[in-house]
Computed example of a mutant assay.
Amino acid sequence: MAAETHFSIERIKRTEHFSMASDHMHDSYEIYYLLSGERYYYIDNRLYALQAGDLIFIHKHGLHRTTNKGETSHERILINFDETFISPSLDMQETRELLVEQHFLLRPGEQEGAVIVGMLEALLGEMDRNDPFRKIYQRSLLVQLLVYIRRLHNVQYMPIVPEVSGKQQRVYAIIEYIEAHYAENLMLDQLSSAFYISSTYLCKIFKQTTGFTIVEYIRYVRIRQAQQYLRETRWPVTRIAEQTGFDSIAHFGRVFRQLTGRSPLQYRKQFLRENNADKAAT
């Protein structure tokens, strides 16, 4: 059975303060284009200050969140898709070249931005059509968009650099510590002692910089690693729970479902099904 394809695109304008309320990661790829306003965007363990015209490509399984910056009003276009949506138009090598296994951020010039907006508006226009060619044309437009932004990325066209201050550097160090020690019984007091700051201040600067609480981020790191084990090993779920720092299989299953929308076994079965479908297509 062929894997189910996924594609969605939406354009939203907000005139009031808006920050994403919870952890956000998914099995699809994401393209975020900021049409107007300013936003803080947390991605790949770093905080970025976005301005109108900035574009972000987010690899699947990446943690990301947007929060307020500057004026309350902002408008953006958001695309979510999986590789099975574009794969009918490409071979496996071409798909891998387009869908690089990393996030990247671009600040295109005015001319390049106009080209990107034109492609995005064409994709949005297709959402209102109801004919047998809509999906084919959407796929074609998305492939064109991916090729265009990959070309910009390959020549490192005005890459956006992360925000860096003394406070943020300290938070980045805390993040690196969590990434290295997620399998341990991490406690807030342990983190505050390791970085010689009070628990209250640690929680404050971590939330301000990333938009996440310490507990939320530890959960994300553990589940991200659990997903990798589910994809790359045949370990039983109980062993994966232990290896990723959970104190019980019930707690692991509950958090995994909260963050991914499915159980660990459902996640593994879906991955195996899609992987086998890809192999059968070659």
Score class of each variant (00 low, 15 high):
Met1His: 10
Ala3Met: 11
Arg11Ala: 13
Glu16Asn: 13
Phe18Ala: 09
Ser19Met: 03
Met25Leu: 08
Glu30Trp: 03
Tyr32Ala: 10
Tyr33Asn: 14
Leu35Met: 10
Ser36Val: 06
Gly37Ile: 05
Glu38Cys: 02
Glu38Met: 07
Asp44Ile: 00
Arg46Ile: 01
Leu47Phe: 04
Ala49Asn: 06
Ile58Cys: 09
Lys60Asp: 09
Gly62Leu: 02
Arg65Thr: 07
Asn68Gly: 04
Asn68His: 03
Lys69Trp: 02
Lys69Pro: 00
Glu71Gly: 10
Ser73Thr: 12
Arg76Asp: 04
Arg76Cys: 01
Ile79Phe: 07
Asp82Asn: 15
Glu94Pro: 00
Glu101Gly: 08
Glu101Ala: 07
Arg107Val: 04
Glu110Trp: 11
Glu110Phe: 13
Gln111Phe: 12
Val115Trp: 11
Val115Met: 10
Val117Met: 11
Gly118Ser: 15
Leu120Pro: 02
Ala122Gly: 05
Glu126Ala: 10
Asn130Gly: 03
Tyr137Trp: 09
Leu146Ala: 02
Arg151Glu: 13
Arg151Asp: 13
His153Glu: 15
Val155Ile: 15
Gln156Asp: 12
Pro159Gln: 11
Pro162Asn: 05
Lys167Asp: 02
Arg170Thr: 03
Ile174Cys: 07
Glu179Val: 05
Ala180Cys: 08
His181Glu: 08
Asp189Ser: 13
Gln190Gly: 02
Leu191Ala: 04
Ser192Lys: 01
Ser193Ile: 01
Ala194Arg: 13
Ile197Pro: 00
Cys203Tyr: 00
Lys204Pro: 00
Phe206Leu: 00
Lys207Ala: 00
Glu216Asp: 14
Tyr217Asn: 04
Tyr220Gly: 07
Gln225His: 15
Leu230Val: 04
Pro236Ala: 05
Glu242Ser: 10
Thr244His: 02
Thr244Gly: 04
Phe246His: 08
Asp247Glu: 14
Ile249Glu: 15
Ala250Gln: 11
His251Pro: 01
His251Asn: 10
Phe256Ile: 04
Leu259Ile: 06
Leu265Cys: 03
Gln266Gly: 14
Gln270Lys: 14
Glu274Val: 06
Ala277Thr: 06
Lys279His: 13
Ala281Ile: 12
Thr282Ile: 11
